[in-house]
């Protein structure tokens, strides 16, 4: 084995961090759109809502694979510990994504069962989101570990805290989805999206406040990280910026701006994400394995890095092109009336 003098861990942390955040934003908005779909006023509205994400959802969902496989590649110990620990949330997420994914296709072509697939789309999106939120909550609380393997029960991950973060993420993705719909629709449907955006926003506000109070109470490590001097000084911008963003988001949901609500929601997610990263650094398996302890062999990280650094920009470029092709307001009925 060749010994490589370069430490790839920080770079892989950045790449994986970016990949997970990209997934959260992009599949986040289309899962959110899926949740809101269940509340759309009528058939025509539902069609527009689903159309707004039809060309992009599977591209977004593949980032989940990149996140999972990226974790395996860069931090295999984390992958091997976390996935069995969140066995049932992962199962629920995967099965829900299966239902939701096929609902896109079946919805259009299966006339008799349209309502079943309508439900599959909405509930599938909601369950997948909730399950991801439970994974997040369980992650923050940490896992029982023996050596390089999880040693607890598959049911340990269900705690009041993780169930709450599950609900919180449903509101969060709902807000992202509403922001997307405000941008992609017009008229009554846009007004409807703004209204549901406000509901989700209130949920997000409550969730952020409760999680921010609850987390330091149950995790002394995080409490110390937040409140010990001088950290509290360095970290104070996080809640302040979040509060400002919240104000901007509320105004955007209520005024006539098109894209501001989506951008504001992204900002809120970014702040929460940074908050979690700051709280848990340098752990990838909270309180047990640091990024360096869980890292794969340097030659593994190097081999994958070559292709990733070359392909990631290309991927982002043509993903951008794909969004550009389907830009503008979504309309289902052009040329048919």
């Amino acid at each position: 084995m060749t010994v490589l003098p370069f430490d790839f861990v920080p770079l892989w942390t950045l790449i994986l961090g970016f990949g997970v955040f990209y997934y959260v934003l992009f599949d986040g908005f289309d899962l959110g759109v899926g949740i809101l779909y269940g509340f759309a006023p009528d058939r025509a509205a539902r069609n527009l809502v689903m159309n707004s994400i039809a060309p992009v959802w599977d591209g977004n969902e593949t980032w989940l694979v990149l996140g999972g496989v990226g974790l395996l590649a860069a931090f295999p110990a984390a992958f091997a510990i976390i996935l069995p620990a969140v066995y049932f949330p992962i199962l629920a997420m995967l099965l829900a994504l299966v239902f939701r994914g096929v609902a896109f296709e079946f919805h259009y072509r299966d006339v008799e069962h349209r309502t079943i697939w309508d439900h599959a789309f909405c509930y599938g999106s909601a369950v997948a989101t909730f399950a991801q939120g439970v994974v997040l909550g369980a992650f923050i609380q940490g896992f029982q570990v023996d050596g390089r393997q999880f040693s607890g029960s598959a049911f340990d991950c269900f705690t009041p805290f993780s169930l709450f973060t599950g609900l919180a993420l449903v509101c969060g993705y709902g807000l992202l989805g509403a922001g997307w719909l405000i941008m992609k629709t017009e008229g009554e449907l846009q007004t409807w999206a703004r209204r549901f955006g406000r509901y989700c926003f209130i949920g997000v506000l409550v969730a952020v406040a409760v999680v921010s109070l609850w987390t330091p109470l149950i995790e002394p490590y995080i409490a110390h990280r937040w409140f010990a001097w001088p950290n509290i000084g360095f970290l104070s911008p996080v809640p302040i910026v979040t509060a400002l963003l919240a104000l901007w988001e509320w105004r955007s949901l209520n005024n006539r701006s098109e894209a501001a609500a989506f951008i504001g929601a992204i900002g809120l997610f970014l702040m929460s994400y940074i908050g979690i990263a700051i709280s848990l650094w340098p752990f990838i398996v909270p309180y047990k394995f640091t990024l360096w302890q869980a890292a794969s062999a340097p030659s593994t990280q190097a081999f994958l890095l070559v292709g990733t650094l070359f392909l990631l920009p290309v991927i982002l470029m043509y993903t951008g092109w794909s969004y550009w092709v389907f830009r503008g307001k979504v309309r289902a009925d052009i040329g048919y009336h």
């Binding site: 496989v69 590649a73 295999p76 994958l304």
Partner: peptide, 17 residues
Amino acid sequence: ADATANVLSPLFAYEGI
């Protein structure tokens, strides 16, 4: 997964990318 990750994970990841 833990035993083979160093060798196999880049192959899975390259499939993904």
